[in-house]
Design a protein around this nucleic acid. Structure first.
Ligand SMILES: [Mn+2]
Ligand SMILES: [Mn+2]
Ligand SMILES: [Mn+2]
Ligand SMILES: [Mn+2]
Lengths: 220, 220
DNA sequence: AAGAATTTTTAGATTAATCTAAAAAAACAA
DNA sequence: TTGTTTTTTTAGATTAATCTAAAAATTCTT
Protein backbone atom coordinates (compact mmCIF):
# COMPACT_ATOMS: atom_id res chain seq x y z
CA UNK A 1 0.00 0.00 0.00
CA UNK A 2 2.60 2.50 1.12
CA UNK A 3 6.02 2.12 -0.46
CA UNK A 4 9.34 2.23 1.32
CA UNK A 5 9.81 5.75 -0.05
CA UNK A 6 6.38 6.99 0.99
CA UNK A 7 6.92 5.64 4.51
CA UNK A 8 10.15 7.59 4.79
CA UNK A 9 8.43 10.82 3.74
CA UNK A 10 5.64 10.26 6.27
CA UNK A 11 8.10 9.53 9.07
CA UNK A 12 10.06 12.68 8.30
CA UNK A 13 6.94 14.85 8.09
CA UNK A 14 5.88 13.41 11.45
CA UNK A 15 9.18 14.31 13.06
CA UNK A 16 9.27 17.83 11.67
CA UNK A 17 5.63 18.39 12.64
CA UNK A 18 6.26 17.21 16.18
CA UNK A 19 9.20 19.59 16.51
CA UNK A 20 7.49 22.71 15.21
CA UNK A 21 3.82 21.95 15.93
CA UNK A 22 2.85 23.40 12.59
CA UNK A 23 2.95 22.84 8.81
CA UNK A 24 6.16 21.47 7.42
CA UNK A 25 7.91 23.20 4.52
CA UNK A 26 8.94 21.53 1.29
CA UNK A 27 12.57 22.49 1.85
CA UNK A 28 12.62 21.02 5.36
CA UNK A 29 11.41 17.71 3.99
CA UNK A 30 13.92 17.86 1.14
CA UNK A 31 16.76 18.30 3.56
CA UNK A 32 15.87 15.24 5.66
CA UNK A 33 14.97 12.99 2.73
CA UNK A 34 18.20 14.01 1.01
CA UNK A 35 16.32 14.91 -2.14
CA UNK A 36 15.54 18.14 -4.01
CA UNK A 37 12.55 20.37 -3.34
CA UNK A 38 11.18 19.51 -6.79
CA UNK A 39 11.03 15.82 -5.86
CA UNK A 40 9.30 16.66 -2.60
CA UNK A 41 6.63 18.70 -4.37
CA UNK A 42 5.85 15.72 -6.57
CA UNK A 43 5.68 13.35 -3.64
CA UNK A 44 3.49 15.66 -1.55
CA UNK A 45 0.93 15.80 -4.35
CA UNK A 46 1.01 12.01 -4.50
CA UNK A 47 0.64 11.57 -0.72
CA UNK A 48 -2.17 14.08 -0.78
CA UNK A 49 -3.97 12.09 -3.49
CA UNK A 50 -3.65 9.07 -1.22
CA UNK A 51 -5.13 11.07 1.68
CA UNK A 52 -2.02 10.60 3.79
CA UNK A 53 -1.21 14.32 4.06
CA UNK A 54 -3.03 17.64 4.02
CA UNK A 55 -1.35 19.68 1.35
CA UNK A 56 -2.15 22.89 -0.46
CA UNK A 57 0.43 24.24 -2.85
CA UNK A 58 2.79 26.73 -1.19
CA UNK A 59 1.07 26.17 2.18
CA UNK A 60 3.21 23.42 3.66
CA UNK A 61 2.10 19.96 4.68
CA UNK A 62 0.68 18.13 7.72
CA UNK A 63 -0.23 14.47 8.22
CA UNK A 64 -3.81 13.25 8.08
CA UNK A 65 -4.95 10.86 10.82
CA UNK A 66 -4.16 7.96 8.49
CA UNK A 67 -0.75 9.42 7.59
CA UNK A 68 0.08 9.78 11.25
CA UNK A 69 -1.01 6.20 11.88
CA UNK A 70 1.41 4.98 9.22
CA UNK A 71 4.22 7.20 10.51
CA UNK A 72 3.80 5.98 14.07
CA UNK A 73 3.74 2.39 12.93
CA UNK A 74 7.07 2.89 11.15
CA UNK A 75 8.55 4.64 14.20
CA UNK A 76 7.29 1.83 16.44
CA UNK A 77 8.99 -0.75 14.26
CA UNK A 78 12.21 1.26 14.06
CA UNK A 79 12.47 1.53 17.83
CA UNK A 80 11.48 -2.07 18.56
CA UNK A 81 14.12 -3.33 16.13
CA UNK A 82 16.71 -1.07 17.78
CA UNK A 83 15.88 -2.66 21.13
CA UNK A 84 16.24 -6.09 19.58
CA UNK A 85 19.62 -5.25 18.07
CA UNK A 86 21.02 -3.90 21.33
CA UNK A 87 19.32 -6.13 23.91
CA UNK A 88 19.40 -9.44 22.05
CA UNK A 89 22.15 -9.26 19.45
CA UNK A 90 24.64 -7.25 21.47
CA UNK A 91 25.05 -4.23 19.21
CA UNK A 92 26.15 -0.95 20.73
CA UNK A 93 23.65 1.92 20.67
CA UNK A 94 25.69 3.76 18.05
CA UNK A 95 25.51 0.88 15.54
CA UNK A 96 21.81 0.23 15.22
CA UNK A 97 20.17 3.19 13.52
CA UNK A 98 21.07 2.36 9.91
CA UNK A 99 20.02 -1.25 10.26
CA UNK A 100 16.74 -0.19 11.87
CA UNK A 101 16.16 2.18 8.93
CA UNK A 102 15.88 -0.94 6.80
CA UNK A 103 14.03 -3.17 9.25
CA UNK A 104 11.34 -0.55 9.94
CA UNK A 105 9.80 -1.22 6.51
CA UNK A 106 9.24 -4.95 6.99
CA UNK A 107 5.52 -5.43 6.62
CA UNK A 108 3.91 -7.89 9.04
CA UNK A 109 1.66 -7.03 11.95
CA UNK A 110 2.18 -10.44 13.56
CA UNK A 111 5.92 -9.97 13.38
CA UNK A 112 5.73 -6.67 15.23
CA UNK A 113 3.42 -8.10 17.87
CA UNK A 114 5.63 -11.13 18.45
CA UNK A 115 8.81 -9.08 18.47
CA UNK A 116 7.28 -6.72 21.03
CA UNK A 117 6.39 -9.66 23.25
CA UNK A 118 9.80 -11.30 22.79
CA UNK A 119 11.44 -8.07 23.95
CA UNK A 120 9.17 -7.83 27.02
CA UNK A 121 7.05 -4.91 25.75
CA UNK A 122 9.80 -2.29 26.05
CA UNK A 123 8.69 1.30 26.56
CA UNK A 124 11.90 2.97 25.34
CA UNK A 125 14.48 2.35 22.66
CA UNK A 126 18.25 2.33 23.31
CA UNK A 127 18.39 6.10 22.84
CA UNK A 128 15.66 6.80 25.37
CA UNK A 129 12.99 7.44 22.73
CA UNK A 130 9.51 6.22 23.69
CA UNK A 131 8.04 3.35 21.67
CA UNK A 132 4.47 3.92 20.41
CA UNK A 133 2.12 1.13 21.49
CA UNK A 134 0.25 -0.98 18.95
CA UNK A 135 -2.46 1.67 18.74
CA UNK A 136 0.12 4.30 17.92
CA UNK A 137 -0.06 5.93 21.34
CA UNK A 138 3.12 7.37 22.71
CA UNK A 139 3.55 8.98 26.15
CA UNK A 140 4.31 12.69 26.28
CA UNK A 141 7.47 12.94 28.30
CA UNK A 142 8.67 15.92 30.29
CA UNK A 143 12.21 15.65 29.07
CA UNK A 144 14.47 18.69 29.20
CA UNK A 145 17.71 19.39 27.40
CA UNK A 146 20.73 19.36 29.66
CA UNK A 147 21.49 22.83 28.26
CA UNK A 148 18.37 24.20 29.96
CA UNK A 149 19.19 23.02 33.47
CA UNK A 150 20.36 25.46 36.17
CA UNK A 151 23.74 25.27 37.83
CA UNK A 152 23.70 23.14 40.97
CA UNK A 153 20.81 20.91 39.93
CA UNK A 154 20.99 17.11 39.83
CA UNK A 155 19.46 15.39 36.81
CA UNK A 156 19.14 11.89 35.39
CA UNK A 157 20.19 11.26 31.80
CA UNK A 158 17.27 9.56 30.01
CA UNK A 159 17.86 10.10 26.31
CA UNK A 160 19.63 11.72 23.39
CA UNK A 161 18.18 13.81 20.56
CA UNK A 162 21.03 13.23 18.12
CA UNK A 163 21.62 9.65 16.94
CA UNK A 164 24.83 9.89 14.92
CA UNK A 165 27.45 7.30 15.59
CA UNK A 166 30.06 9.99 16.21
CA UNK A 167 27.97 11.63 18.93
CA UNK A 168 27.04 8.37 20.65
CA UNK A 169 30.62 7.15 20.65
CA UNK A 170 31.72 10.43 22.19
CA UNK A 171 29.14 9.94 24.95
CA UNK A 172 30.35 6.38 25.61
CA UNK A 173 33.91 7.64 25.92
CA UNK A 174 33.01 10.33 28.44
CA UNK A 175 30.80 8.06 30.53
CA UNK A 176 27.57 9.80 29.53
CA UNK A 177 25.24 6.82 29.26
CA UNK A 178 21.50 6.48 29.85
CA UNK A 179 20.80 6.32 33.57
CA UNK A 180 23.79 8.42 34.54
CA UNK A 181 23.23 11.02 37.27
CA UNK A 182 24.56 14.43 36.30
CA UNK A 183 25.22 17.53 38.44
CA UNK A 184 25.83 20.90 36.80
CA UNK A 185 28.92 22.36 38.41
CA UNK A 186 29.49 25.46 36.36
CA UNK A 187 28.19 27.36 33.33
CA UNK A 188 30.57 29.37 31.18
CA UNK A 189 28.59 32.39 30.05
CA UNK A 190 30.42 33.23 26.84
CA UNK A 191 29.92 29.90 25.03
CA UNK A 192 27.39 28.19 27.32
CA UNK A 193 29.73 25.26 27.87
CA UNK A 194 29.29 23.27 31.07
CA UNK A 195 31.34 21.62 33.77
CA UNK A 196 29.43 18.63 35.05
CA UNK A 197 30.04 15.72 37.36
CA UNK A 198 28.79 12.27 36.47
CA UNK A 199 27.55 9.81 39.09
CA UNK A 200 29.92 7.14 37.82
CA UNK A 201 32.89 9.24 38.94
CA UNK A 202 34.66 11.98 37.05
CA UNK A 203 33.87 15.59 36.36
CA UNK A 204 34.02 16.63 32.75
CA UNK A 205 33.63 19.61 30.48
CA UNK A 206 31.07 19.60 27.64
CA UNK A 207 30.09 22.08 24.92
CA UNK A 208 26.65 23.66 24.59
CA UNK A 209 26.19 21.62 21.39
CA UNK A 210 26.60 18.41 23.35
CA UNK A 211 24.39 19.58 26.24
CA UNK A 212 21.59 20.47 23.81
CA UNK A 213 21.42 16.88 22.63
CA UNK A 214 21.29 15.20 26.03
CA UNK A 215 17.80 14.64 27.44
CA UNK A 216 17.37 14.65 31.21
CA UNK A 217 14.78 14.73 33.97
CA UNK A 218 15.28 16.63 37.22
CA UNK A 219 16.02 14.69 40.40
CA UNK A 220 14.66 15.85 43.71
CA UNK B 1 25.01 -2.67 -5.33
CA UNK B 2 22.43 -5.37 -6.01
CA UNK B 3 18.80 -4.30 -5.75
CA UNK B 4 16.02 -6.21 -4.06
CA UNK B 5 14.80 -7.23 -7.52
CA UNK B 6 18.20 -8.36 -8.76
CA UNK B 7 18.68 -10.45 -5.63
CA UNK B 8 15.40 -12.23 -6.26
CA UNK B 9 16.40 -13.06 -9.82
CA UNK B 10 19.76 -14.42 -8.64
CA UNK B 11 18.14 -16.53 -5.94
CA UNK B 12 15.69 -18.01 -8.43
CA UNK B 13 18.39 -18.72 -11.02
CA UNK B 14 20.37 -20.44 -8.27
CA UNK B 15 17.46 -22.67 -7.30
CA UNK B 16 16.63 -23.63 -10.88
CA UNK B 17 20.29 -24.29 -11.66
CA UNK B 18 20.66 -26.51 -8.62
CA UNK B 19 17.62 -28.54 -9.65
CA UNK B 20 18.60 -29.11 -13.26
CA UNK B 21 22.38 -28.79 -13.15
CA UNK B 22 22.34 -26.84 -16.38
CA UNK B 23 21.41 -23.53 -17.99
CA UNK B 24 18.15 -21.99 -16.88
CA UNK B 25 15.57 -20.89 -19.45
CA UNK B 26 14.01 -17.46 -19.66
CA UNK B 27 10.54 -18.92 -19.25
CA UNK B 28 11.49 -20.87 -16.13
CA UNK B 29 12.74 -17.67 -14.51
CA UNK B 30 9.63 -15.78 -15.61
CA UNK B 31 7.41 -18.34 -13.94
CA UNK B 32 9.14 -18.12 -10.56
CA UNK B 33 9.60 -14.35 -10.58
CA UNK B 34 5.96 -13.97 -11.58
CA UNK B 35 6.91 -11.73 -14.47
CA UNK B 36 6.82 -12.05 -18.25
CA UNK B 37 9.58 -13.51 -20.40
CA UNK B 38 10.19 -10.08 -21.94
CA UNK B 39 11.01 -8.64 -18.51
CA UNK B 40 13.34 -11.54 -17.79
CA UNK B 41 15.24 -10.99 -21.04
CA UNK B 42 15.83 -7.37 -20.05
CA UNK B 43 16.99 -8.31 -16.58
CA UNK B 44 19.31 -11.06 -17.81
CA UNK B 45 21.09 -8.59 -20.07
CA UNK B 46 21.44 -6.26 -17.10
CA UNK B 47 22.74 -8.97 -14.75
CA UNK B 48 25.14 -10.06 -17.47
CA UNK B 49 26.46 -6.50 -17.81
CA UNK B 50 27.07 -6.58 -14.05
CA UNK B 51 28.93 -9.90 -14.41
CA UNK B 52 26.51 -11.70 -12.12
CA UNK B 53 25.34 -14.19 -14.75
CA UNK B 54 26.67 -15.87 -17.89
CA UNK B 55 24.17 -15.15 -20.58
CA UNK B 56 24.11 -15.50 -24.34
CA UNK B 57 20.89 -14.69 -26.14
CA UNK B 58 18.71 -17.76 -26.62
CA UNK B 59 21.24 -19.93 -24.74
CA UNK B 60 19.87 -19.76 -21.22
CA UNK B 61 21.61 -18.40 -18.14
CA UNK B 62 23.91 -19.58 -15.34
CA UNK B 63 25.36 -17.74 -12.36
CA UNK B 64 28.92 -16.46 -12.31
CA UNK B 65 30.96 -17.11 -9.16
CA UNK B 66 30.00 -13.65 -7.93
CA UNK B 67 26.33 -14.20 -8.79
CA UNK B 68 26.37 -17.44 -6.86
CA UNK B 69 27.99 -15.72 -3.91
CA UNK B 70 25.18 -13.16 -3.81
CA UNK B 71 22.50 -15.84 -4.21
CA UNK B 72 23.92 -17.93 -1.38
CA UNK B 73 24.14 -14.89 0.87
CA UNK B 74 20.45 -14.17 0.29
CA UNK B 75 19.53 -17.82 0.90
CA UNK B 76 21.62 -17.81 4.08
CA UNK B 77 19.78 -14.76 5.37
CA UNK B 78 16.40 -16.16 4.42
CA UNK B 79 17.00 -19.37 6.34
CA UNK B 80 18.56 -17.73 9.39
CA UNK B 81 15.61 -15.36 9.69
CA UNK B 82 13.22 -18.32 9.41
CA UNK B 83 15.02 -19.98 12.31
CA UNK B 84 14.71 -16.76 14.30
CA UNK B 85 11.00 -16.45 13.60
CA UNK B 86 10.26 -20.03 14.65
CA UNK B 87 12.79 -20.59 17.45
CA UNK B 88 12.68 -17.16 19.09
CA UNK B 89 9.39 -15.53 18.16
CA UNK B 90 7.22 -18.63 18.26
CA UNK B 91 5.92 -18.62 14.69
CA UNK B 92 4.80 -21.90 13.18
CA UNK B 93 6.84 -23.20 10.20
CA UNK B 94 4.02 -22.44 7.79
CA UNK B 95 3.97 -18.73 8.69
CA UNK B 96 7.55 -17.64 8.15
CA UNK B 97 8.35 -17.82 4.47
CA UNK B 98 6.75 -14.56 3.35
CA UNK B 99 8.28 -12.59 6.19
CA UNK B 100 11.70 -14.10 5.43
CA UNK B 101 11.26 -13.07 1.78
CA UNK B 102 11.40 -9.50 3.05
CA UNK B 103 14.06 -9.93 5.74
CA UNK B 104 16.47 -11.71 3.37
CA UNK B 105 17.22 -8.37 1.67
CA UNK B 106 18.34 -6.50 4.78
CA UNK B 107 21.90 -5.46 4.08
CA UNK B 108 24.32 -5.77 7.02
CA UNK B 109 27.08 -8.32 7.39
CA UNK B 110 27.38 -7.67 11.13
CA UNK B 111 23.67 -8.26 11.55
CA UNK B 112 23.88 -11.65 9.86
CA UNK B 113 26.92 -12.64 11.91
CA UNK B 114 25.30 -11.62 15.19
CA UNK B 115 21.98 -13.22 14.31
CA UNK B 116 23.78 -16.47 13.45
CA UNK B 117 25.53 -16.42 16.82
CA UNK B 118 22.34 -15.52 18.70
CA UNK B 119 20.62 -18.53 17.13
CA UNK B 120 23.51 -20.85 18.09
CA UNK B 121 24.88 -21.27 14.55
CA UNK B 122 22.00 -23.38 13.27
CA UNK B 123 22.73 -25.77 10.39
CA UNK B 124 19.15 -26.18 9.17
CA UNK B 125 16.09 -23.98 8.81
CA UNK B 126 12.61 -24.95 10.07
CA UNK B 127 11.88 -26.79 6.82
CA UNK B 128 15.02 -28.90 7.00
CA UNK B 129 16.91 -26.83 4.41
CA UNK B 130 20.64 -26.47 5.11
CA UNK B 131 21.94 -22.97 5.93
CA UNK B 132 25.01 -21.88 3.93
CA UNK B 133 27.90 -20.81 6.19
CA UNK B 134 29.34 -17.31 6.04
CA UNK B 135 31.59 -18.37 3.16
CA UNK B 136 28.58 -19.57 1.21
CA UNK B 137 29.34 -23.24 1.75
CA UNK B 138 26.42 -25.58 2.12
CA UNK B 139 26.62 -29.33 2.81
CA UNK B 140 25.44 -31.71 0.09
CA UNK B 141 22.82 -33.86 1.73
CA UNK B 142 21.74 -37.32 0.71
CA UNK B 143 18.05 -36.61 1.09
CA UNK B 144 15.53 -38.74 -0.77
CA UNK B 145 11.91 -38.06 -1.56
CA UNK B 146 9.51 -40.22 0.41
CA UNK B 147 8.00 -41.19 -2.96
CA UNK B 148 11.24 -42.99 -3.89
CA UNK B 149 11.40 -45.23 -0.83
CA UNK B 150 10.58 -48.96 -1.06
CA UNK B 151 7.73 -50.59 0.80
CA UNK B 152 8.77 -51.88 4.21
CA UNK B 153 11.61 -49.41 4.75
CA UNK B 154 11.89 -47.14 7.82
CA UNK B 155 12.90 -43.54 7.19
CA UNK B 156 13.32 -40.33 9.16
CA UNK B 157 11.56 -37.18 7.98
CA UNK B 158 14.18 -34.44 7.68
CA UNK B 159 12.68 -31.82 5.36
CA UNK B 160 10.10 -30.63 2.88
CA UNK B 161 10.57 -29.40 -0.67
CA UNK B 162 7.34 -27.44 -0.87
CA UNK B 163 6.92 -24.48 1.49
CA UNK B 164 3.36 -23.36 0.96
CA UNK B 165 1.29 -22.69 4.03
CA UNK B 166 -1.41 -25.07 2.83
CA UNK B 167 1.02 -27.97 2.50
CA UNK B 168 2.73 -27.34 5.84
CA UNK B 169 -0.57 -27.05 7.67
CA UNK B 170 -1.68 -30.34 6.14
CA UNK B 171 1.51 -31.96 7.43
CA UNK B 172 0.95 -30.57 10.92
CA UNK B 173 -2.56 -31.96 10.93
CA UNK B 174 -1.46 -35.44 9.92
CA UNK B 175 1.45 -35.56 12.36
CA UNK B 176 4.10 -35.38 9.66
CA UNK B 177 6.68 -33.15 11.35
CA UNK B 178 10.45 -32.99 11.07
CA UNK B 179 12.01 -35.83 13.06
CA UNK B 180 9.07 -38.18 12.60
CA UNK B 181 9.91 -41.80 11.85
CA UNK B 182 7.97 -43.18 8.89
CA UNK B 183 7.43 -46.75 7.71
CA UNK B 184 6.04 -47.46 4.26
CA UNK B 185 3.24 -49.96 4.69
CA UNK B 186 1.83 -50.19 1.20
CA UNK B 187 2.14 -48.67 -2.28
CA UNK B 188 -0.91 -48.42 -4.51
CA UNK B 189 0.37 -48.99 -8.03
CA UNK B 190 -2.26 -47.12 -9.99
CA UNK B 191 -1.78 -43.67 -8.41
CA UNK B 192 1.43 -44.22 -6.40
CA UNK B 193 -0.34 -43.25 -3.20
CA UNK B 194 1.08 -44.61 0.04
CA UNK B 195 -0.06 -46.07 3.34
CA UNK B 196 2.46 -45.16 5.98
CA UNK B 197 2.78 -45.41 9.73
CA UNK B 198 4.22 -42.54 11.73
CA UNK B 199 6.34 -43.08 14.84
CA UNK B 200 4.09 -40.78 16.86
CA UNK B 201 1.24 -43.25 16.49
CA UNK B 202 -1.26 -43.52 13.69
CA UNK B 203 -1.13 -44.96 10.21
CA UNK B 204 -2.25 -42.66 7.43
CA UNK B 205 -2.76 -42.55 3.72
CA UNK B 206 -0.97 -39.94 1.56
CA UNK B 207 -0.94 -39.08 -2.12
CA UNK B 208 2.09 -39.32 -4.39
CA UNK B 209 2.03 -35.51 -4.63
CA UNK B 210 2.52 -35.27 -0.87
CA UNK B 211 5.15 -38.04 -0.75
CA UNK B 212 7.18 -36.27 -3.46
CA UNK B 213 7.53 -33.21 -1.25
CA UNK B 214 8.66 -34.95 1.93
CA UNK B 215 12.43 -35.37 2.31
CA UNK B 216 13.71 -38.35 4.26
CA UNK B 217 16.83 -40.33 5.09
CA UNK B 218 16.87 -44.10 5.45
CA UNK B 219 17.12 -45.62 8.91
CA UNK B 220 19.09 -48.80 9.52
C1' DA C 1 4.09 49.12 -1.73
C1' DA C 2 7.64 48.03 -4.82
C1' DG C 3 11.57 45.47 -5.79
C1' DA C 4 14.64 41.79 -4.44
C1' DA C 5 15.41 37.46 -2.51
C1' DT C 6 13.79 33.08 -1.32
C1' DT C 7 10.83 29.22 -1.68
C1' DT C 8 8.04 26.29 -4.19
C1' DT C 9 6.11 24.38 -8.19
C1' DT C 10 6.10 22.96 -13.05
C1' DA C 11 8.26 21.27 -17.33
C1' DG C 12 10.86 18.06 -19.32
C1' DA C 13 14.40 14.19 -18.74
C1' DT C 14 16.34 9.97 -16.75
C1' DT C 15 16.64 5.29 -14.60
C1' DA C 16 14.74 0.84 -12.94
C1' DA C 17 11.37 -2.47 -13.53
C1' DT C 18 7.67 -3.82 -15.65
C1' DC C 19 4.13 -4.69 -19.56
C1' DT C 20 1.93 -5.92 -24.51
C1' DA C 21 2.56 -6.81 -29.19
C1' DA C 22 5.45 -7.99 -32.85
C1' DA C 23 9.65 -9.95 -34.77
C1' DA C 24 13.24 -13.31 -34.72
C1' DA C 25 15.35 -17.60 -33.44
C1' DA C 26 15.19 -22.30 -32.07
C1' DA C 27 12.97 -26.66 -31.60
C1' DC C 28 9.77 -29.98 -33.15
C1' DA C 29 7.38 -32.78 -36.62
C1' DA C 30 5.85 -34.57 -40.63
C1' DT D 1 14.09 -30.44 -45.07
C1' DT D 2 10.61 -27.54 -44.79
C1' DG D 3 6.78 -25.89 -42.44
C1' DT D 4 4.68 -25.25 -37.75
C1' DT D 5 4.92 -24.40 -32.98
C1' DT D 6 7.29 -22.69 -29.11
C1' DT D 7 10.56 -19.83 -26.99
C1' DT D 8 13.01 -15.75 -26.71
C1' DT D 9 14.12 -11.19 -27.85
C1' DT D 10 13.14 -6.46 -29.37
C1' DA D 11 10.24 -2.28 -29.84
C1' DG D 12 7.66 0.86 -27.73
C1' DA D 13 4.85 2.20 -23.48
C1' DT D 14 4.01 2.86 -18.53
C1' DT D 15 4.81 3.84 -13.53
C1' DA D 16 7.60 5.33 -9.51
C1' DA D 17 11.10 8.17 -7.99
C1' DT D 18 14.35 11.09 -8.97
C1' DC D 19 16.92 15.19 -11.24
C1' DT D 20 18.00 20.19 -13.47
C1' DA D 21 16.38 24.38 -15.20
C1' DA D 22 12.88 27.64 -15.56
C1' DA D 23 8.61 29.76 -14.05
C1' DA D 24 5.55 31.20 -10.44
C1' DA D 25 4.31 32.39 -5.81
C1' DT D 26 5.50 34.00 -1.41
C1' DT D 27 8.19 36.54 1.84
C1' DC D 28 11.46 39.90 3.15
C1' DT D 29 13.43 44.53 2.92
C1' DT D 30 13.77 48.94 2.17
MN1 LIG E 1 17.19 5.29 15.11
MN1 LIG F 1 16.51 5.26 18.47
MN1 LIG G 1 11.34 -19.98 2.94
MN1 LIG H 1 12.78 -22.55 4.63
Amino acid sequence: MTSFTEENYLKIIYKLSAETNSEVSTNAVAELTQTKAASVSDMLRKLSDKQLVNYQKYQGVTLTAEGERVALSVIRKHRLWEVFLVAKLGFNWDEVHDIAEQLEHIDSEELVAKLDEFLGFPKFDPHGDPIPDHNGRMPVLGYQNLSEIEVGKNVLMVGVSEHSSAFLQYLDKTGLILGAGITILELNEFDKSLSISISSGNAIFISHEVAKNILVIEQK
